[in-house]
Simulated scan of single mutants.
Amino acid sequence: MEKVVQTGGCLCGAVRFEVTGDGSNPHSCSCRNCQQHTGAPTVAWMEFARDQVRWTGTVGAPATYRSSDYSSRAFCAACGSSIGAIDDAPTVALLAGSFLILPRPPLRPNTTRLKIASRTGGWSPLPLLMRGLWFAAALTPRNEKSTPKRARAD
């Protein structure tokens, strides 16, 4: 049976990776470390055993920053792109956005970590969802016959 190989890397291409086989524990997270690491309100991750990941870019493995007592955040030192996290356990968690094509099977988080209850005025996905719905509705083509034309005020 052929092993599935998925590839990805950073924006400038200096950090590249290949992963062999399927990942595990797809999840999303909205903790403060993930927010500061990526600049996004929430991120999607896919975990791989360390021996499933091979660093193939010109710089080899990504640069790391020790972000907790069990993990280091991985990023490209040249362009600053977030790549993932390399845990002390033999786990490499890669950000979904760093793959050229989303991991197969499709990345569908099994769990979500939203830490909004502990912060006053914390992040909530509802305004973004509502904005997205409004934006999608604004871009939807309208049938000219069913849409009344506005009168011009001259």
Rank of each mutant, 00 (worst) to 15 (best):
C79Q: 04
L107S: 07
G21R: 09
G132H: 08
N143I: 04
M130H: 04
L94D: 00
A14L: 07
W134P: 04
R50D: 00
H37Y: 01
A117P: 15
S146Y: 12
T120F: 06
R113S: 07
E47W: 04
E2K: 13
A63L: 08
I83K: 07
Y70V: 10
V53L: 03
L114E: 01
N33C: 09
A85R: 09
K145R: 08
L94M: 05
C79W: 05
L129T: 10
A117L: 08
R104W: 02
S30M: 09
T64C: 14
P148K: 04
R54D: 00
P41L: 02
I116A: 13
S146A: 14
R113N: 10
T56C: 08
G84Y: 05
G21K: 09
V92A: 07
P106Y: 02
R104T: 05
V15K: 14
N110L: 14
A61C: 02
C79K: 06
R108Q: 03
S28H: 09
G23C: 09
L100S: 11
H27F: 06
E18G: 14
S68D: 04
K115Y: 02
A136F: 11
C31Q: 05
P90V: 00
I83Y: 05
S146H: 13
R131A: 03
R66D: 01
R16W: 02
Y65M: 13
E2D: 12
I101V: 11
C79R: 05
D22F: 11
N25G: 10
S71Q: 06
G23R: 06
A14F: 06
V15Y: 07
H27R: 13
G84A: 08
E144W: 06
L128E: 11
R108K: 09
A96D: 07
P141I: 03
P62G: 08
L114P: 15
S71D: 03
A14W: 05
A77S: 15
Q35K: 11
R73H: 12
I86W: 15
H27A: 11
N143G: 10
L133E: 03
P148R: 03
L128G: 04
Y65A: 14
N33P: 13
E144Q: 13
W45H: 09
L129I: 14
P105S: 06
D154E: 10
P125R: 12
V5M: 12
Y65D: 10
V19Y: 02
C12E: 06
R119I: 06
C76I: 11
A137D: 03
T91S: 11
R50S: 01
D88Y: 07
C79T: 05
V4W: 00
S72A: 15
G80D: 01
A93D: 00
W123I: 02
I116T: 10
R66G: 08
P103G: 12
S28E: 05
V53K: 01
V43R: 08
N110T: 12
Y70K: 07
A49M: 01
G8M: 02
P103C: 09
P106L: 05
R50F: 01
G80M: 08
Q36F: 06
F17W: 05
G84C: 08
V19G: 10
